[in-house]
Simulated assay, not measured.
Amino acid sequence: MMNAVSKAWDGALVRKWLESRVDAARLEQAAADRRGYAAQDDYDKAAAEEWVCRSLKMSGHTDDQAGFAERVKTLLAQEEYRTTGIHDDRRFERYVRANLRKIAKMTKANDGFANTLRYQG
């Protein structure tokens, strides 16, 4: 017997979560930029989160859990992720993949999208 999802997929909630993460990532990038060289890792981490959330938000699949999960899977399968302004391409790609895996788990469980706090663990 398959486990039933306890609550319905809410595309509007997912879009709101993605937008809140884009905003938080921008703030984190600005803060890291002000701290300089020592915060380059933090900058790349925030840039990766912004890239992932922006890519998923613009995909148009947020209203369908299966379509959204497939989009996450497609992004994970990419060879590389292009963006400008980052400090270390390998580190950025590692953070992109980590964010995509986190969102894949959230999507599968349909849980965590209600947490729109700026700082998340």
Rank of each mutant, 00 (worst) to 15 (best):
D88I: 03
D64S: 15
A47I: 01
D10V: 02
L18D: 01
K45F: 03
E93G: 07
A32C: 13
L56K: 02
M58F: 05
R101C: 03
Q120L: 15
E80L: 05
A8C: 06
L76G: 03
V72N: 01
K102N: 07
A98K: 08
R26Y: 09
A104C: 04
A12S: 12
Q120R: 15
D41K: 09
R71Y: 01
E79C: 01
C53N: 10
T83R: 15
D33N: 14
K45M: 04
N99H: 13
H61L: 06
R34G: 13
R34T: 13
E50L: 12
R82A: 14
D23L: 14
D23Y: 06
D111T: 08
G67T: 00
D111F: 12
W51K: 03
A25C: 09
A48F: 02
T84Y: 15
R21F: 09
Y119M: 07
V52L: 09
R91Y: 08
N115R: 13
A77H: 00
D44R: 07
R34L: 15
A69E: 05
Y43M: 11
W9M: 07
G60S: 08
N115F: 07
V14E: 02
T62V: 12
R97S: 06
K16F: 04
W17H: 14
L117V: 07
A30M: 12
A66K: 09
S55T: 08
T116E: 11
D88S: 13
Q78S: 13
A46V: 04
A24F: 11
F92S: 03
M2V: 06
A8D: 10
A109Y: 01
E79N: 08
L27P: 00
Y37A: 15
K57M: 06
K102R: 14
A66I: 02
S20L: 12
K45N: 05
S20G: 14
R26K: 13
A104W: 00
W51S: 04
I86M: 08
Q78A: 13
G60F: 05
A39P: 01
R82H: 08
R35G: 05
D42I: 03
Y81D: 00
R82E: 10
A38T: 10
E50N: 12
G121I: 08
K57G: 11
V52G: 07
R82K: 12
N3R: 14
A4E: 08
E50P: 04
A77D: 06
D42W: 06
G112K: 11
Q65R: 15
L18C: 10
Q120V: 13
R97E: 06
E28Y: 13
T83G: 14
S55A: 15
F68L: 01
A32L: 10
A114F: 02
Y119E: 10
T62R: 04
W17Y: 15
D89E: 14
R90I: 04
R94V: 02
R90L: 10
T84E: 15
V5C: 10
R90D: 09
T84S: 15
D111W: 03
W17P: 02
N115Y: 09
M106D: 02
V72F: 00
K7L: 09
R97K: 14
A104F: 00
M2A: 10
A39D: 05
Y95E: 08
K16M: 09
E49T: 05
L100V: 01
R82V: 07
T62N: 07
Q120H: 09
L117F: 05
A39N: 04
Y43I: 07
D64W: 05
A39V: 02
T62E: 11
A12M: 09
R26F: 08
R15G: 08
